[in-house]
């Protein structure tokens, strides 16, 4: 059964129609890339899938149940989201910040167990942040604070991960690191992820499926290798995109104005 699916979902923000009657099924083991030009509504769609932005019509289903009827706490145990921006305003150690991800799994009077702490340390370590565990979350670089936010999602340990531009602020090595971590989570633990991003070539490397948002509610969804081609990408980004194939790797490159 699909972990996350949508049925005739229409989403709007202000005057912008993000999608119209979107029906997709995100099954365990699938890593979806959400591609589209700036301002097309990728963030809004992710928020709708997370149940924090209202849909115009249609519904989102989590484990086959209508998302809007579920309690936030039960949603948070199955679905987590990495927001596009995170800003920390209060002093806390990085470990403590990551540990907040356990919140939906604990009852009001529970305290985090040693296992929870170990999980937080392990999440930090998997993202190369082990040295920062005791440091304050307030003085981090852009890339460090991006990875810390992702660590919080990993500690939350949801079956469905919605990721809003997880590679922002990250250098190429760290982009690969975190996408490897996410890919292992998805494949190895029967999870699923939907990731908004701008780097088409990362999508071809890591995503099993893509959802293309053309604007005005138009969309296409399907397996990455069937959907991503020069024609579609040129239309998607309104500029000429070329496929460069050297025999071992296929790379999309910007080739000027359309």
């Amino acid at each position: 059964m699909a972990l996350l699916s949508t049925r005739d979902l229409s989403v709007q923000i202000g005057d912008v129609v993000v999608v119209e009657s979107l029906s997709i099924e995100v099954a365990p083991g699938q890593f979806w890339g959400l591609l589209g030009p700036n301002g097309v509504g990728k963030t809004t769609l992710l928020k709708t899938l997370a149940g924090v932005h209202p849909a115009c019509s249609g519904e989102v289903l989590l484990d086959g149940k209508t998302l809007s009827t579920l309690k936030r706490r039960s949603v948070a145990r199955r679905l987590g989201m990495l927001p596009q921006h995170t800003r920390y305003v209060f002093e806390a150690s990085c470990e403590q910040t990551a540990l907040v991800g356990r919140h939906p799994h604990l009852r009001a009077w529970d305290r985090e167990s040693e296992a929870d702490r170990a999980r937080a340390r392990q999440a930090l370590a998997s993202l190369g942040l082990e040295k920062l565990a005791e440091r304050s979350c307030m003085n981090l670089s852009g890339g460090e604070s991006r990875r810390l936010a992702l660590a919080t999602v990993l500690v939350q340990d949801p079956a469905v991960m919605l990721l809003d531009e997880p590679t922002n602020h990250l250098d190429p090595a760290n982009q690969v690191t975190i996408l490897d971590v996410l890919g292992r989570q998805v494949r190895g633990h029967d999870k699923a992820a939907v990731m908004a991003l701008h780097e088409v070539n990362l999508a071809t490397c890591y995503c099993t499926h893509v959802l293309l948002l053309y604007g005005n509610g138009e969309y296409e969804a399907g397996p990455t290798d069937q959907l991503l081609d020069e024609q579609r990408l040129s239309r998607l980004y309104q500029c000429k995109m070329r496929l460069v194939d050297d025999g071992s790797q296929r790379v999309f490159a910007v080739a000027g104005q359309s």
């Binding site: 997370a50 936030r72 706490r73 039960s74 145990r77 987590g80 989201m81 927001p83 919140h103």
Partner: peptide, 15 residues
């Protein structure tokens, strides 16, 4: 959780 803002609070299970 709420110290991290309304969006983060909702995503971590606070209505």
């Amino acid at each position: 959780v709420m110290s991290a803002g309304a969006l983060q609070a909702a995503l971590l299970g606070e209505s």
